[in-house]
Measured scan of single mutants.
Amino acid sequence: DHWHVHIDGERIRLDGASEEFIRTLEELIRRGTDARELKEIIKEYLR
């Protein structure tokens, strides 16, 4: 599956992301997590 998110107007691909990770991201977004912080979390995950 190819997922991607838009954060700060930037399109970030989440290739190979699990549904669990996507749900976690959605939860963080709902909580109002800062965009820079979200991008860091995604970069760490994709390593």
Rank of each mutant, 00 (worst) to 15 (best):
D1G: 14
D1C: 09
H2Q: 13
H2P: 11
H2N: 14
W3C: 04
W3Q: 09
H4C: 09
H4S: 07
H4K: 02
V5N: 02
V5W: 04
V5Q: 02
V5F: 07
H6W: 11
H6M: 15
I7M: 05
D8H: 04
D8I: 02
G9A: 03
G9N: 07
G9V: 03
E10K: 06
E10W: 05
E10C: 03
E10N: 05
R11L: 15
I12L: 08
I12F: 14
I12W: 12
R13C: 11
R13P: 13
R13D: 15
R13A: 15
L14A: 03
L14V: 14
L14P: 01
D15F: 15
D15G: 06
D15W: 15
G16E: 06
G16W: 09
G16P: 03
G16I: 06
A17N: 03
S18P: 12
S18Y: 03
S18E: 05
E19A: 15
E20F: 13
E20M: 13
F21V: 03
F21E: 01
F21C: 01
R23N: 06
T24L: 11
T24G: 08
L25V: 10
L25K: 00
E26I: 12
E26R: 14
E27P: 01
E27F: 11
E27Q: 10
E27R: 11
L28Q: 03
I29K: 03
I29F: 07
I29A: 03
R31A: 11
G32A: 04
G32N: 05
G32F: 06
T33S: 07
T33A: 10
T33Y: 06
D34M: 11
D34V: 07
A35S: 13
A35D: 05
R36Q: 14
R36P: 06
R36I: 10
L38W: 02
L38F: 03
K39I: 09
K39E: 06
K39C: 02
E40S: 11
E40G: 07
E40V: 09
I41K: 09
I41N: 01
I42A: 01
I42F: 02
I42W: 03
I42H: 00
K43T: 12
K43Y: 14
K43N: 10
E44Y: 07
E44H: 11
E44M: 13
Y45C: 01
Y45S: 03
Y45H: 05
Y45I: 03
L46Y: 14
L46R: 04
R47N: 10
